[in-house]
Design a protein around this nucleic acid. Sequence first.
DNA 1: AAACAGCGCAACCGCAGAAGG
DNA 2: ACCTTCTGCGGTTGCGCTGTT
Length: 258
Amino acid sequence: MVRAPCCEKMGLKKGPWTHQEDRILIDYINLHGHPNWRALPKLAGLLRCGKSCRLRWTNYLRPDIKRGNFSREEEETIIQLHTAMGNRWSAIAARLPGRTDNEIKNVWHTHLKKRVNPNHTTEPTSNFEEKQEESKEEDEQTGARSSSSPLETNSTSSTDQTSYNQIDSPQPSCTEISSVTTSTNDNVYNEEMILENFPEMDDEFWSEVFSGGNSDEFPLVHENIGQLQSGCGQESILHDDMDFWFNVFTRGEELPQI
DNA sequence: AAACAGCGCAACCGCAGAAGG
DNA sequence: ACCTTCTGCGGTTGCGCTGTT
């Protein structure tokens, strides 16, 4: 089967997502859904491939994602399901509401595999296993390690996921931006926070967007914003957002360089 | 205090199947 | 029936963080 590489197009951004990109993606999907992932980044004004957008959404930005440590019950469920189904992570994830296949896969490879099949581990000593178990249990009690990131400590707990995006992006450069609170319903976020942290914006990304060179490729940025502002019933919800981004887009070049 | 090693997780890659023309 | 495009899935990698020496 002949298939063009997903991101063959030069200039598409790879690597960790910025909060701004997250924001754009969330807002776009809230408004338009995601009928066509391939077209989505262009329409939304993102320099990402559709695949990357889909992955980011399904694994991180989706409103129903439950983040934080896996409970004992969840781990047991994963073990049982894996025994029954094998590496069918998506099928397993389907039975664990709020958990993604990627997350489950990671947990399996980092914790559960060792527990289920200790011989599989490369760690030679049983002490290691004990340590793992100990630290794990400790984690469950204290919410340590995986939830010890400054981002997640800031959110309440993994289980009382408020609603939508606690955008607790793990990206190290953004760790201080942990208080972005939005919800599906009000879709309000802390604009001040964004402004405060604006210097962290990927300058290259935006300069590419605004540069004449890409104006042909992303002519829709302004246009879309305009549409969003005018064409949607819930515009009041997003109005501030859109105003803000419109300003960003239109005044981007005026922004101070850090 | 610095260097090193291991761990955890987000993101990427490539393949396969589904859908549409 | 065939071809092309899109989406979803599973495997793998890269890198930051944490603990240890």
